[in-house]
Design a protein around this nucleic acid. Structure first.
Lengths: 216, 216
DNA sequence: CGACCATTTGATATGGATCAAGCGATGTGG
DNA sequence: CCACATCGCTTGATCCATATCAAATGGTCG
């Protein structure tokens, strides 16, 4: 089911001065696990997370799920090179998401070079992320989990304490592991004093050096 | 991406009419295994394969190599979201490569919307490729090899007979497997009549359906 | 308190890695 | 033109990291 934004009555984008893509579009709330869009649906919108966390994923024919990425407040998602979505998107937690017409962005980009540049920058970031992710998937379980924790810490403004909004299953499906392996690996990292699990969702990085070394 | 001082150095691009990025730049020959650029070098150029095949790759601290992609004639590579290369690039076979100043492309994109669009399209293709590649890396050995063969066949204008320019080691490093597993898997696929190895480098797809099914 | 869900921990199985050897094609120097 | 070295590929035997199967623990909410 495609998420439709509320009907836009006032043409905000009409007066939007050269600047930011996210000036056009409508905020929409999604509940936990609500679908934002599905794989193979027309990619008529791009999205920006206002609050909450979003995951994109694909399900293989045998039921395995691969998560493409986690999107935190401020992140944009839903970019596609074709006109269909190649991943699905769901809210992990209750989330507010800005929904932006792709055609409006395209039109704006035609007139405003800075918007065109922004689009390219964001697509470039998605590319860099996919390449990093790809590198994770050929590593050992310890390296993948360490890499994941470092990524999350980095995105949490480099703080050492990270609150994970996603389940072990989400992490496992992001890293191409099972929940058991993720859980065991976190326990190992805790035993080796690299991290501390104050609760199962709140993780303190005690020894980034060790994590980076694992991350090869 | 491509945020650079718009210094206009090449007079050629000054007359280049709206159109194709690859109108500017110089062709350069590279021998087998010659380096085109290295990871962490400044990304001052983008590249277009004229003839031959190119691989991009990263080497992890313990010596494992991960190949990011194979580039065939007509393909462009070297796009980066930062100003450094995050992968290295080498010629797999003797190759001719068009070398294009990034600053020239940026400058052109500022004046010519179609060039800006082209840049976005190509970055989008790289993104789509990385995402496909990523999906391969969480599958079984059979699925990875089948997916690789289908990708190669598709890029060879959909022909059923594919001449592979790369070694088993290259394939293994692309798929996150060992050469032994790649070799054994190809043998299995041959035994199950899905493919035929007329020589070790020339592969005939006998049963695409079976390969697609494996590819999940 | 009891039900449910997420997480951890334990025991066993297995797909692919590793170690090892052999084979065929290609190229080179004598 | 042959002998031999080299390189890419295949095949076999064994090992091991992670998956799978199973159960217990903990945390949350009605």
């Amino acid at each position: 089911m495609l998420a439709r934004p509320p009907v836009q009555t006032t043409p905000i984008s009409a007066h939007a001065l050269p600047g930011s893509i996210d000036l056009i579009g409508a905020p929409m709330p999604f509940g936990r696990n609500a679908e934002i869009y599905g794989e193979n649906e027309p990619a008529d919108y791009i999205y920006k997370v206002i609050s909450g966390t979003v995951r994109t994923y694909k399900v293989l024919s045998d039921g395995r799920r691969q998560i493409g990425g986690f999107y935190l407040p401020g992140d944009m998602f839903g970019f596609e090179s074709g006109d269909m979505h190649t991943f699905s998107a769901e809210a992990i937690t209750p989330a507010k998401v800005l929904v932006i017409r792709r055609s409006a962005v395209s039109a704006l980009a035609e007139r405003d070079l800075s918007v065109a540049r922004q689009l390219l920058v964001m697509t470039g970031h998605e590319l860099a992320h996919a390449q990093n992710h790809l590198m994770l998937l050929v590593k050992t379980a310890q390296e993948r989990v360490a890499g994941f924790l470092l990524e999350m810490a980095e995105r949490a403004q480099g703080r050492n304490e990270v609150e994970l909004p996603m389940t072990r299953q989400d992490i496992a499906d992001y890293l191409g592991l099972t929940i058991e392996t993720v859980s065991r690996t976190l326990t190992q990292l805790e035993n080796s004093a690299a991290i501390e699990l104050s609760t199962s969702r709140r993780i303190v990085l005690r020894n980034r050096g060790a994590l980076h070394r694992l991350n090869s």
